[in-house]
Design a protein around this nucleic acid. Sequence first.
DNA 1: CTAATCCCTATTATCCCGGTCGGATGAATC
DNA 2: GATTCATCCGACCGGGATAATAGGGATTAG
Lengths: 147, 147
Amino acid sequence: MKLSTRSTYGMRAMLELALAVGQGPVMVREIAERQRLPATYLEQLMVLLRKAGLVNATRGAHGGYALAREPRDITVAEIVEVLEGPLDLVECPSGAGCCGQPEVCALCDLWNDAGKTLTAFFQGMTLATLAERQRAKSAAPVLMYSI
Amino acid sequence: MKLSTRSTYGMRAMLELALAVGQGPVMVREIAERQRLPATYLEQLMVLLRKAGLVNATRGAHGGYALAREPRDITVAEIVEVLEGPLDLVECPSGAGCCGQPEVCALCDLWNDAGKTLTAFFQGMTLATLAERQRAKSAAPVLMYSI
DNA sequence: CTAATCCCTATTATCCCGGTCGGATGAATC
DNA sequence: GATTCATCCGACCGGGATAATAGGGATTAG
């Protein structure tokens, strides 16, 4: 039930883009170095994000990636869903999650509700919020607690 | 990010036991047949649930499994955690989920909060509630909507 | 034209899940 | 006490997905 690295890598890249908003496109290699990620692997993920309309790519020299929308208009839910597939805990009703009879199975509801809970959480979180938090963390280091 | 079948199989078995509470132990084969699950596979899962103290096993003839506690005192969170591992979305801070510096990484908090949300949801759901819902569903079939 | 960068398609390695099998252990029945 | 029944335990295996790597093609700036 862990998230795959696709999501976490992707989120790290997207956060990086959110922090660099307004500074022109950022190269994959640059992101990869800053985040210590395998560059060629990240490349594939960026293509997925582009196809999903979350980022714009500019090719050629001085190219790179930039967010396609304002950070406040991109939710974590979107990003994760692109890289991880639908935000459901089981694939009802055809899958093994329930008995195959959703109308009669209390567990189907359980899994669906859990998925909705998670989705709601991720939908409520935007790149803008995350970037803000990240800036706060970077600016005010552990010193805060050592007074 | 899907749940493995271990959890779903296990939950189906546990719900079956909850519905059969007070009727003596239930055999694995019996559960497997009713839920259309591979019996020998389910067997392994039941052993895990027993070692976790969620069910009691009686061996030999007329043996089988029964809940170790009252249905209202067994949460979905416990069951899932036994079969699926800790209810976290990433394994911070050593894993690839965050940058390796939880104090400086906004994403660590994100993943942890998401995990807590999910955990809270599952902790709030007991076998008693599920059994009740299941009974309601079985009792009042689709006929309700065809008046 | 040339360098830089994204784009795309294999290919590989590794791990975990889902499942099977055979036999050992322990309990009930006769 | 022998037999039967059911849980227990470990070993094994195939498939599929994940996480990479590699190489070449397309596109743009200078």
